[in-house]
Amino acid sequence: MYDFHNAALSPIQSLLLNIAILSIIVISLIRGERSLRDQSQWGMLFLLAVFGVSGRILLGPIPNVQPVTVLVLLAGAYFGAPRSIALAATIALASNVLLLGHGPWTLFQAIGWGGVGLLGALLANRIVVDGDVRVGFLAVIAAISGLAFNWFVSLSILLEVGPSMLIPYLLNGLVFDLYHVAGNVLFVAWMASPLGDMMHRHRSSPSFKAVIDRVPN
């Protein structure tokens, strides 16, 4: 049998390949967003979920660098906590079941990213000012969220080992935490403004306005 798909790729080659595939997906999603009706939040959330799942899987060669945390944070700021939590859990479950491995940690990831979405919603009035994303502020929040998310998900090892192992486990994972922080700041720097503009176009549902009006400044 011929096995044409079994060509061995170096890590750098597979990363470049995956970035190329992700670029095709992102360009298609941006095109798709333009044809969404203005108030179609659900369509926008679906596109974000596709981006989150594909980004998480395709950027696998660089550990912990993936767009999900920033996506969920922005979704919280623009669409409110319930929808960003739904987005967070959907991305965690779909990407784990598809490829990355599903287990008890999926619940921790879903709750962890859900918490990030909640944080985005709570800070909505400070992340988005006059319709624009405050990139510097968001970068700080995204960095903190990355650390908090990693440490929360690490608690899932307590299902396997005693609490005395937690400190060495966290210590050993510090490099991966730094990857998450650096990746989040990178995604905020490059994506937050265009993504925010897109989300802004699809946030104007009457129910959301009513919620926003009641939040004191």
């Binding site: 660089i62 660098v65 990139v135 510097g136 970068a139 730094l178 990857y179 650096a182 990746g183 700041v185 990178l186 905020v188 720097a189 490059w190 937050a192 403004s193």
Partner: peptide, 15 residues
């Protein structure tokens, strides 16, 4: 944000 874009790329590469 103009400064953050190149800085974030450099930071990730250094890491």
């Amino acid at each position: 944000s103009d400064l953050l874009k190149p800085a974030s790329v450099v930071a990730l590469i250094v890491l």
